[in-house]
């Protein structure tokens, strides 16, 4: 460096006072880049979150017309939990089963697209994403048609006696779980695909050369190397699926309602803000607990 400092101006630098030190600007740059995003988060996430936290502690006897008072009513939490724990349990149960189904379908799908599809790769990826071009609502309504009592699917299942003569799919837990599985599948497949796409097939050959049977290759090489995508995908699937209410609303009955439906009605129908806010916070806390528990178990150093 000292040698460079003695090089005369032949490098094209004009003689005269040196330019202002760039160190300060360099140190500020990351923060400047963060600014728009941070401001956005502050305005539309942090502030509403605080408002919601406050609302969850309002006096539950108030109403929208008479106004709410912040009375630090922590009792709201045990109250809503007691009233709505079945919906809580159902949310996690449905989302969990849907996740399993999605994994059974999504992993082979992502693997096939990433490693076997060759020149069909991009087309298949578009197929995975294509449903997202239509609205979530429309897609779910389409499932309502597919699963309807006089649709071909129910007819077929009745013919092969998988369903009784009066058996139905619509308005059952099966319909809700299928809807969840379908609607969130791309969120699982895309990160998995990204991981599996980077998987070097030569490692699979090496494993095969080193006495690993196909099952062992999957367990010892493919699966560990796709772990980052698998974790990201399961989270991107599970979190929105747990909080979802559209599928239960359109494909189920109040007997299939999930916690999202309860929150929806608390805010928009019953106008019970303290209850809605407390439920929202509980849901958030529960999901965070599940996610952290999951990451602790599954998360290797590559992920965290």
């Amino acid at each position: 460096m000292t040698a460079l400092a003695h090089v005369p101006t032949s490098t094209g630098q004009p003689a005269g006072p040196p330019p202002p030190p760039r160190h300060d600007r360099h140190r500020l740059l990351p923060y400047l880049l963060l600014l728009p995003g941070a401001a956005w988060l502050l305005l539309f996430f942090a502030v509403p979150l605080f408002q919601l936290a406050a609302a969850s502690l309002y006096d539950p006897t108030g109403s929208l017309s008479t106004g709410y008072a912040l009375t630090w009513a922590f009792g709201n939490y045990p109250d809503v939990l007691q009233a709505y724990w079945p919906q809580f349990a159902r949310s996690f149960g449905y989302a969990g089963i849907a996740l399993l189904l999605a994994l059974l379908m999504g992993y082979p799908l992502a693997y096939a697209i990433a490693q076997k599809a060759g020149r069909w790769k991009n087309l298949l990826l578009v197929c995975v994403v294509a449903p997202m071009f239509t609205s979530f609502l429309v897609r779910t309504l389409a499932w309502k048609t597919i699963l309807s009592d006089n649709g071909w699917l129910v007819g077929l299942l009745r013919d092969v006696h998988l369903l009784g003569p009066d058996g139905r799919l619509l308005a059952t837990p099966v319909a809700v779980v299928l809807g969840l599985t379908y609607n969130f599948l791309p969120f699982l497949v895309l990160p998995l695909y990204a991981s599996l796409e980077r998987l070097d097939y030569r490692l699979l050959e090496a494993a095969s050369d080193l006495y690993a049977s196909p099952v062992q290759i999957f367990r010892k090489v493919t699966l560990p190397l796709s772990m980052p995508g698998l974790i990201a995908g399961t989270l991107l699937f599970f979190i929105p699926a747990t909080g979802d209410y559209i599928n239960a609303e359109l494909l189920g009955t109040p007997n299939e309602y999930m916690i999202g439906n309860v929150i929806d009605s608390a805010f928009l129908v019953r106008l019970d803000y303290p209850q809605g806010a407390a439920l929202s916070f509980l849901l958030m806390a529960a999901i965070l607990a599940v996610v952290f528990g999951y990451l602790r178990r599954a998360g290797t150093e590559e992920v965290l």
């Binding site: 070097d200 490692l203 050959e205 090496a206 050369d209 190397l225 590559e302």
Partner: peptide
């Protein structure tokens, strides 16, 4: 057994 041109060591 093979020593591969790319080595193909398991990165994980």
């Amino acid at each position: 057994n093979t020593v591969f041109q790319s080595y193909a060591l398991f990165p994980h």
